[in-house]
């Protein structure tokens, strides 16, 4: 049941992604990207990961708003210019190559049943509440066992906002001479 729903969602997301690429109207493209994000969020819900689903849907709404506000409200409405055939072909070939190289690695990992995966996950599930006091094991992993990763993520966000501030400030302080 869940597998069928997931396959349906995947097909929906692929169609929406292709539509986002193919359409000339920017608003349609942005809405198609939003449909892909919505599909990802529902897929996370079906896979019983509500934490990721909440984050995904919130970030998706925000990104959609940003895209609409930063492009369409400024009068940029349609995509112009020719599609690069050579670049697209090179990208597709590279992605297929990487997929072929990565497949043996992933099939050798044996998710969920392998000893190396079992050890960490069973420890988190059994000892997480008593060790960290956090009933939500995802939060326990994010902010206690793997807090370094969260610190790195916060640093990335901080750096991004500094970069945006600096870039936009230069543009605003020194208007282009025409």
């Amino acid at each position: 049941m869940v597998t069928n729903l997931l396959i349906f969602l995947l097909l929906f997301m692929i169609i929406a992604a292709v539509a986002a690429l193919q359409t000339k109207n920017l608003l349609s493209a942005v809405i198609s990207v939003g449909a892909v994000g919505f599909g990802v969020s529902v897929a996370f819900l079906l896979l019983r990961a509500p934490d990721v689903a909440i984050t995904q849907i919130a970030v998706e709404v925000l990104t959609l708003l940003l895209l609409i506000r930063a492009t369409i409200w400024r009068g940029v409405r349609t995509v112009s210019g020719q599609r690069e055939v050579f670049g697209s072909a090179v990208a597709v070939v590279l992605v297929l190559l990487i997929l072929l190289l990565v497949l043996p690695v992933f099939s050798g990992l044996s998710f969920g049943v392998g000893p190396q995966m079992e050890l960490a996950s069973s420890h988190y599930l059994q000892q997480g509440l008593s060790e960290t006091g956090s009933a939500n094991i995802v939060t326990a992993v994010l902010l206690d066992y793997r807090a370094y990763d969260t610190l790195g993520e916060a640093t990335v966000l901080f750096t991004a906002i500094i970069g945006a501030l600096v870039l936009m400030r230069q543009q605003a302080r020194k208007p282009l001479e025409e």
Partner: peptide, 20 residues
């Protein structure tokens, strides 16, 4: 965030959405 689904990042995005 430490009891149910959610947490700092998701909650922060929702707060930002209110401001936006």
């Amino acid at each position: 965030g430490h009891l149910g689904p959610g947490g700092g990042f998701a909650g922060g995005v929702i707060l930002a959405c209110a401001y936006i």
